[in-house]
């Protein structure tokens, strides 16, 4: 065994990342800066090799197990930390490296480093693998969409809504707008939500790009191409998400920006829109009031995250989403 491994070590230098075992090339690894990445199928087979490396080079750290998601800016992998056996999420930035570190990565890292909150994803570290920047974060196996596929007690749902609002208030109070709140960016573990993906977030400034947030959760002022929006766009997304939790399906499923606007205008018409709609009839009055305040077309009338956590719906511990009759 020992002689084989020495042979491999030697070959690593020669062929940069191609391991040869018994004169037969069997596995391709990405190998860079002393870190090994490989597919899950072969993970077991090469375990010994990797652990040997660990003893030789201390910073062989993460092994990718599988791809778990893909966003606009990056691909997310489930990976294992070979030192602690801990399962982590690795976010690889897709953007080419021609222009140095992509600005979305730069912002995500420097913003995440400021945010230390139980309901916000924790950035463990950032590393460079195969010349690509990777973020190492805690791993959660379910996002909100998957979570809602199963039945959950109402107090869990209410707790999730409240914790999401707390986290968003925490973000906003640090002058940061998330700009991409959607169920896929809210992970759930043990009925506690965690907000992820700060790739689009940025520190508030009076002039911003309108093309942010996934279409279904995009606020009307963004759909109208407004360049000077504020924290209220996150509150609109939250309104959509909270109603999605209650209805168990997305609220507005537009196919284009125009279609999305049309759906919004069709549903929200006048101050009493929720009373005319039968699907809201079973909801608690306080919950409806919260939704109504979040889903205001006019961003200046929408409540802020701070007002939302003080809303009577959360003060009254017997108020749940549905009327219990």
């Amino acid at each position: 065994m020992n002689s084989i491994i020495q042979y491999q070590l030697y070959l690593r230098i020669e062929n940069d990342g191609v391991f040869i075992l018994s004169n037969k090339q069997i596995y391709d690894y990405q190998f860079e800066y002393n870190r090994i990445i490989c597919d899950s199928q072969i993970l077991y087979q090469i375990k010994d090799i990797i652990y040997y490396y660990m003893s030789v080079l201390e910073n062989v750290r993460y092994i990718k197990i599988q791809k778990i998601g893909e966003g606009a800016y990056g691909i997310i992998y489930k990976a294992q930390d070979v030192q602690t056996q801990e399962i982590v999420a690795l976010k690889k930035f897709k953007l080419s490296d021609y222009e140095g570190v992509p600005s979305c990565a730069l912002r995500e890292i420097s913003i995440l480093k400021q945010l230390n909150h139980p309901n916000i994803i924790k950035l463990i570290s950032q590393i460079i693998i195969n010349k690509k920047l990777h973020l190492v974060m805690n791993y959660y196996d379910k996002d909100l969409t998957e979570y809602l596929k199963f039945y959950h007690e109402e107090f869990h749902l209410k707790n999730i809504i409240y914790k999401i609002l707390l986290a968003v208030e925490f973000i906003h109070s640090r002058k940061i707008i998330h700009r991409d709140l959607q169920p896929n960016n809210i992970l759930v573990k043990n009925n506690e939500p965690v907000i992820i993906d700060f790739g689009l977030s940025r520190v508030f400034s009076p002039n911003l790009t309108p093309g942010v947030t996934q279409l279904w959760y995009r606020a009307p002022e963004l759909l109208q191409n407004c360049h000077s929006y504020d924290y209220a766009i996150d509150m609109w997304s939250l309104g959509c998400i909270i109603l999605e939790i209650a209805l168990n399906k997305p609220l507005f499923m537009g196919q284009s920006e125009i279609h999305q606007l049309l759906l919004i205008k069709n549903l929200i018409d006048g101050d009493e829109w929720f009373k005319q709609n039968s699907q809201f009839a079973k909801f608690n009055n306080l919950f409806i009031d919260l939704i109504n305040k979040l889903l205001q077309i006019d961003p200046t009338k929408r409540i802020t995250s701070k007002q939302a956590i003080q809303h009577p719906f959360f003060q009254d511990q017997f108020a749940f989403i549905y009327n219990n009759e």
């Binding site: 021609y98 140095g100 600005s103 979305c104 730069l106 912002r107 420097s110 002039n207 790009t209």
Partner: peptide, 20 residues
């Protein structure tokens, strides 16, 4: 000059960030 580019990446609008 790289520091200036970094500062732009950190806070300017994306379309204003200069390419290398």
């Amino acid at each position: 000059s790289t520091a200036l580019m970094l500062a732009a990446k950190a806070q300017e609008l994306d379309e204003r960030v200069p390419f290398i």
